[in-house]
Simulated scan of single mutants.
Amino acid sequence: MTIAPAMTAMSIPSPSQGVWHLGPVPIRGYALCIVLGIFIAVWISERRWVARGGKAGQIQDIGLWAVPFGIIGARLYHVATDHDLYFGAGRSAWDILYIWHGGLGIWGGIAGGALGAYIGARQHDIRMRPLMDVIAPSLLVAQALGRFGNWFNQELYGRPTDLPWGLKIDEAHRVPGYADFATFHPTFLYEALWNLAGFALILWLERPRNGRSGIGYGRVMALYVIIYTAGRFWIEQLRIDTVELHDVFGLRFNVWTSIVLFVAAVAYFVWSLRRNPGRESQVYADRPAEAPAPAAED
Rank of each mutant, 00 (worst) to 15 (best):
G54Q: 05
A93N: 12
P160Y: 14
L76E: 02
P294E: 15
V270M: 08
I38R: 15
A4G: 01
L273G: 08
I34L: 13
I235L: 06
Q17N: 08
A136C: 14
T2N: 10
Q60T: 10
P160F: 15
G18S: 14
Q60S: 10
A285G: 10
T8Y: 02
V220E: 05
D95I: 00
A197M: 14
G166N: 03
R127M: 00
A222H: 11
V19E: 11
A293V: 15
K168D: 03
T8Q: 06
P164W: 09
L85S: 08
A296L: 15
I96F: 03
F199C: 11
G73H: 05
W65S: 10
I44A: 08
E297G: 15
V260S: 00
G63I: 07
L97T: 13
A192H: 06
Q60H: 07
G109T: 11
G250A: 03
S11T: 05
L223F: 09
A111L: 14
F39T: 13
K55D: 00
A222T: 12
T8P: 04
I227A: 12
T183S: 14
V134M: 07
D95S: 05
G57H: 01
S258E: 04
T183G: 06
F249P: 01
F181I: 13
A267E: 04
W43K: 14
F87K: 05
R147V: 05
T161E: 06
A89K: 15
G63N: 07
W107C: 04
D95Q: 09
F249T: 03
L205G: 08
F188W: 11
A144R: 08
R252H: 01
R252M: 00
S92F: 12
R52V: 06
L156T: 00
R252V: 00
L273P: 00
R275D: 10
A56N: 00
H124Y: 13
S14R: 05
F233H: 04
N150G: 01
A9R: 06
G211K: 01
I72E: 03
P176M: 12
G105R: 00
R129G: 03
V42C: 09
H83P: 00
A200Q: 12
H173C: 02
D298L: 14
A4T: 04
I71V: 13
R207P: 07
R129N: 10
G278R: 02
I259F: 06
C33D: 04
K55E: 03
G103I: 02
D298S: 15
A41L: 09
Y224L: 14
I226E: 14
Y190D: 08
A114H: 11
S272N: 10
D298C: 11
R232P: 06
